[in-house]
Design a protein around this nucleic acid. Structure first.
Lengths: 340, 340
DNA sequence: AATATGAACGCAAACGCTTGCGCAACAACG
DNA sequence: CGTTGTTGCGCAAGCGTTTGCGTTCATATT
């Protein structure tokens, strides 16, 4: 089949151990021998078997990345940037796509990453049991997307501040009936939706606007969900003149619903999203931007650092990346309608 | 650390070989012993080390997936569905994100998948040298996205038919000046753009429309590129009344350019895309839909089949999935302008 | 000149599994 | 009751690395 380390050793007239040391830059090999071995290895097209290497050394040079839906822009982007950091550092990434509850359960019970990865980056928030399972792996752990958990390095954004800037923007424009499309469908421990909701409520209170439960709808974090939610909001007795969607996908769904209702954006209703999706710009969506790719890269970097310095296991770092409101064309003052 | 096979063997009062056979469903183990071993293994939380297993058996139960940009919708979606098929079959996926030329080169020279995967699915078209490198792995190979190569199972769509339906639709609406935004920037061997271009030219010829090179622009397969390309097209002496974009992303860029030019779609110019992007619906884009997720799943299935029946290595299958034109709101007859 | 020091390298023992083979024990056959 | 199968299991030899330790030899030290 392909060349093994002993083939290289034989061809170079040295022992296998020397080949191993030479190729991995370990001390104890003279420069000339190292050069010769390197040449022979290249000529034979030799690459060390990762299986054998990790069996012997315990290091796998592989990072496990678990993500809910690779297909969604947010996760795809985080994964993309994280992978680049990992591969630049010589690590491979083992991907686990845990869309359905079944695959998710299967992953956490069988834990296929055991003895296979040096660290894991989770793009979903594990519940108590799941995070315990991950901790049992005994490797550094990191998470993007909110919800701090013990033992995890988490990098995220300030959901509160982001939401406040969005909602306050609507208030400043003069809106009083401000709806919200949330993504509350997730599991309990997933804190982002509740943080955003709290921030939304606080801004309303600050502005002296009484909260109307009828102006909240669940959009399930999808385009379709957002469309449904907006449709619901339009059906209440006094519909909102502006809505804050907790994700751009939902905001886009809302835009579609509005178009179907022949309502003008932003003249009839203003819309602001969250994320700054790749295509938010295309549809002119005002949104609060978060550095998605950077979060993935940063989480990856933190993980690598922990691998490099296994000494002082830093007790669950927490990094917050900046957010900012991006004004585009879906927000404007409310249309003065009749009295008031 | 974590339990090993000998721990389980000892606890169950049998030999390691029996544990191995029992847990993997191999014959030669009585049902009662198997049950007992299973119980002990579960209680100890035992999972076989993949490194050791693959070192011993040669099978890695891992598939390498190489993709140009995980972050892009198309690739993310293909990856998503392929991963599901693989993981359902008990395979893990090792992801290689080869965005930049450097990482790409590094991947193909160092070939980190060597001795690490049982098969590889490539979402990018390897050139002659690269595909030779992959073939040297001696494992089943598959590709989505056009461009057949020896030794690869390829699943794709009929680019020709797809393009024809799109362009013919524009012709049927009465358009005579039909522009095209292509993604020709790729490497030579990447056939999709040229196939689509040929189909475009053929339809024009069939319709008795002389081809105008000024109506073609490169959009680089990105939103920004599409916007730039559309801007260029609008600057020619007699701008197109309709444009066919070779991808939805570019079409969306075109839409943005048109909006910036205060041109109405479809009244002033019609736009049709290609892919049926997740958000094509949101912007009302007429497009030719291709079953993206299905392509990933199908490619994965074909790969698994080859792994199951290593006997008759089928000589490079080729699968074509159906496409269909999806009519939405960005196409209409040309606005009658002045004379002619 | 004798000894200590260190650099360069080889030996061999892991690492945790798989698998061909051998060996009991027992059933079925004539 | 001896043969021939069959079934269930253990032995031990790998799989291709890494790495602690030992050996050799040249150089520095007294």
């Amino acid at each position: 089949m392909t060349a093994s380390i002993t083939d290289v050793a034989r061809a170079a007239g040295v022992s296998a151990s020397t080949v191993s040391r030479a190729l991995r830059g370990r001390p104890g090999v003279s420069e000339e021998v190292r050069a010769q071995i390197t040449a022979v290895a290249a000529q034979l097209g030799y690459t060390a078997s990762r299986s054998a290497a990790s069996l012997a050394s315990g290091r796998t040079f592989t990072i496990g990345v678990v993500v809910p839906y690779v297909g969604r822009w947010f996760f795809g982007t985080v994964l993309d940037s994280a992978e680049q950091v990992f591969s630049a550092a010589g690590y491979d990434v083992l991907l686990y796509n845990l869309g359905s509850p079944e695959t998710r359960k299967r992953f956490f019970t069988r834990l296929p990453v055991r003895k296979r990865v040096d660290a894991v980056l989770s793009l979903l928030i594990p519940d108590e049991e799941e995070s315990a399972a991950l901790r049992s792996l005994g490797v550094p752990l990191a998470t993007t997307v909110g919800g701090t958990r013990p033992g995890f390095t988490v990098v995220g954004i300030d959901d509160r501040a982001g939401t406040e800037s969005a909602v306050r923007h609507l208030v400043n424009l003069g809106h009083r009936r401000i709806g919200m499309i949330s993504g509350s469908s997730g599991p309990q421990h997933w804190t982002t939706p509740v943080e955003r909701r709290n921030a939304y409520l606080d801004v309303l209170t600050d502005a002296g606007i009484e909260h109307d439960a009828a102006l909240e709808a669940d959009g399930d974090y999808t385009v379709e969900g957002g469309e449904r939610a907006m449709t619901e909001l339009l059906a209440v007795s006094r519909p909102p003149t502006a809505v804050f969607a907790q994700s751009d996908e939902m905001a886009m769904g809302a835009l579609r619903a509005l178009r179907r209702h022949r309502l003008k954006v932003p003249d009839d209703v203003s819309v602001v999203g969250f994320d700054d999706h790749e295509l938010a710009d295309v549809v002119g969506l005002t949104t609060v931007a978060q550095p998605v790719a950077e979060q993935g890269a940063e989480a990856a970097r933190l993980l690598l650092r922990q691998l490099d310095e296994p000494d002082a296991e830093p007790p669950a770092e927490q990094v917050r990346m900046p957010i900012r409101l991006v004004l585009r064309e879906t927000t404007a003052p409310p249309r003065p309608r009749g009295p008031q």
